[in-house]
Amino acid sequence: MVSPASSVQDGHRPGLGWALPAVVFFALFAVVPLVLVAVLSFTTWSGLGTPEFSGFDNWVTLFHDPVMIKSLWLSVLLTGLGVLVQTPLSILLGVWAAGPQRNRAVLSAVFFVPLLLSATAVSVLWRALLDPNFGVPAEAAWLFGDGNLLGSRTGAVAVLVLVSTWQFTPLHALIHQGATRAIPAVLYQAAEIDGAGRVRQFFHITLPQLRNSIITSVILMVVGGLTTFDTVLILTQGGPGTDTTISAYYMYQKAFKGFEFGAGAAIALLLVLVATAVSLVVVRVSGFDKMAGTKEGM
């Protein structure tokens, strides 16, 4: 029997066969559909009969469609707001939950409950909670006014940000909790000897040490944010008007409500390109691709 380690030492790499399952899976469920969608974006197809080739028609229409352009900005806005709100919250929660105290372990378990629910269930729950006549707003008119949260642009965007924050902050807190626990205790001991207080320790030890986990979580938020769909479907259905019609939802409207699968495919492809570009930029700007260690000299 040859152990993997020794085969690498001998200069033999594991056979390509080992990569086959992953490659087949990726090709079947990612590459092939992506290619099909790309082809579909150059056709007109209502779901019945065979797609008809229509050249760049879908693309030309798309770039002249004010709703499409607005939807891209909305996607970026929602994603940006999501990152701004969730990042500080999840860092604080994660760092707090990393402590060894028993009560923190119990409370953390409670905080993670939203993560276990499906986005659909979460949205239905919040819709009922936010009903202007029978939900929370009816009981707290001093705060919500007439409760027209989902009927106004600001209100609807705020609700979407709130609901995804409620749901996804635990995931990111979990990432930061793990990363915080991996910080060597010796750093804090040294800081204490130097007279640094808890706040100072947080900003000068914890945060810099969390750098890589923060970047990971931001990329997850960006990709997740750009493809947000279920919360919009159930909470706002893109309304009022088109004020929360983000690109992913617009794709759904075109493809599955209007049965213009060609136009839907073009939006999907555009979304793939934008999401790819954005995460590449994040990776480049943050220096994450160099994967610099945070523990030099230790």
């Binding site: 992506l34 990709v223 493809t227 979304l271 790819t276």
Partner: peptide, 23 residues
Amino acid sequence: KTRARFRRAVAGGAVLALSLALA
């Protein structure tokens, strides 16, 4: 690493595309 990231981003987008194609 950039390449790995790139692949993951593409995979993320493709899942979206997949849902369309599958449906």
